[in-house]
Amino acid sequence: MTLTPTQLDRYKRHILLKEIGGAGQQALLRARVLIVGMGGLGNPLAQYLAAAGVGTLGLVDDDCVDLSNLQRQILFDTHHVGAAKIDVAAARVKALNPDVEVICHPHRLTGENAAALIDQYDVVADGCDNFETRYIVNDACFHARKTLVSGAVGQFDGQVATFKPWLRDGDNVPLPCYRSLVPAVPDDDGEDCATLGTMGAVAGMIGALQALEVIKEITGCGESLAGKVLIFDGLRAHARTVKLAWDPANPLNGTGKNG
């Protein structure tokens, strides 16, 4: 695949980066990324990945735009209230970059459809709004050996992690999966952003960080976040990256399992 003159112009700032270059840009144009959830994380993910020239973007969401979404879901305008989120997002992405093919999956990701859905993509970016779906995404990505870049936000805080649990580290210990970070659904799972509130700009930060990690996984540039968690604390304006160890007790790739 050769970059056209228009593409050379559009992606000039990427191509100038020695870590990306023409080869990295071509890898992005060939890549297929699935974005789970079109909320505060899915919005900047779709925007930055589309702008970056990721060739195929799959969008999963079954929700419609609500007025209370607009405080943080920056793809949506006031007149979009009531419209299907992925229809609006797909139109915005296509308008932003005609190089991007958008595939709409207007339903929830479930244990029944996850494997077939994820199989169509190279990398999965999870920005969904509940722990149950996060486990389904994690498990399906593990079985299909697809890189998972997971993002989550609280009120003023956020976390980003990359999971490749079928790989092993230098000591032959498996890399962790999401179940090594969150072993069980927390007791207060009912307390979501709808009840606790959330800072829109933090969702923008975490979604943009996820987009960066997706781009790094596709192009191979920099250092993968696999085996680590980036924790952002917006109130303290502080971020740190911590090591996440594999938990041998986790039911997916724990001791005696197929990891």
């Binding site: 505060g40 709004d129 936000v153 952003c193």
Partner: peptide
């Protein structure tokens, strides 16, 4: 102490 968060905002 790191709170588990699962929101997609």
């Amino acid at each position: 102490i790191v709170q588990f968060i699962g929101g997609g905002a």
